[in-house]
Design a protein around this nucleic acid. Sequence first.
DNA 1: CACTCTTGGTTCAAGTTTGAAACAAACCTA
DNA 2: TAGGTTTGTTTCAAACTTGAACCAAGAGTG
Lengths: 170, 170
Amino acid sequence: MTTRWLTPKEQRAWRAYIAATFLVEDAIDRQLQQDAGMPHLYYSILANLSETPERRLRMTDLAERTKITRSRLTYAVGRLEKDGLIRRENCRWDKRSSFAVLTEEGMEVLERTAPGHVENVRSLLFDHLTEEQVEQLEEICTGIVQRLQEDERPTPDEVPWRRRSSPSCS
Amino acid sequence: MTTRWLTPKEQRAWRAYIAATFLVEDAIDRQLQQDAGMPHLYYSILANLSETPERRLRMTDLAERTKITRSRLTYAVGRLEKDGLIRRENCRWDKRSSFAVLTEEGMEVLERTAPGHVENVRSLLFDHLTEEQVEQLEEICTGIVQRLQEDERPTPDEVPWRRRSSPSCS
DNA sequence: CACTCTTGGTTCAAGTTTGAAACAAACCTA
DNA sequence: TAGGTTTGTTTCAAACTTGAACCAAGAGTG
């Protein structure tokens, strides 16, 4: 099978995509490291917890939400726990599972730093996009995510997939 | 000044964006680690060199192209050199500068692994996007990149910005 | 020329990520 | 219920990234 190389148009898109994602992640990381003392991923972990009814999530669910490996999460939660922003609790029903729980202090850090973060996201992205572009971006990205998740999902039928909607900006 | 939170639409876009970029980078990294024994960034370094007339680039220029810090690049080139895929050469005119040069072996690795990589990029991204979406994606991303680069550029007037076009997929 | 500033690059320690391996607790299933 | 598989999580070493500090070589200036 002979390779289907990228068309020039696709190449431009791919390169721009790579450059943009690198630069954005970098800018986000730097700002959060400055103002919250943690990289974006760690902030997202706190944010995800905060959006949950009890501000707690099983490790696996948290990993699923943040799109990272469990091992990476273990480390991250370890650090956040050391910082006092998260507490671990183990599940009474399933003794394998453990929960990450957002502490009061963690919530405070989040509330204190969220405005700066949102402002940054705006100035990096949304302040320069038209309404249509925001929609386009969402559509493109959700498409990608869906396909990528399908691959690894238990395949056909499945538990009535429990999805919750969520506020705020991770 | 009261925070301008993200609208629900913007939030959805932001979350989808984060999820997509994480998942894509991950998938790309895994495939390249498998088939080329290196993460995406390292592959990009080789790719960038290969697109250059003499297959060589000053460290700083290479860092600029790949959007990473010089220190990160130093490390990466160190490893690629150890692997024999890159050779360093120093510049005769400016004794501070050094070049990274793609070796013959490096070129071979690139040629051997490029098809698989492109196929992967296609299946992750382009096979599922319409022509319009490819254009939209490019437009959105180049916009972001331009703004982010302007900030750090020497500002007003500037050397007649030497940009070269380039083939292939990094 | 001396002085200062900038530029190109590396170094180093501390922090993070990766991926495979290890464990233990649930879950089958004959 | 014993035996085997899956699931939830951690561990560990090796690899990678970060950012500040450093060093040397060019540039600009009086």
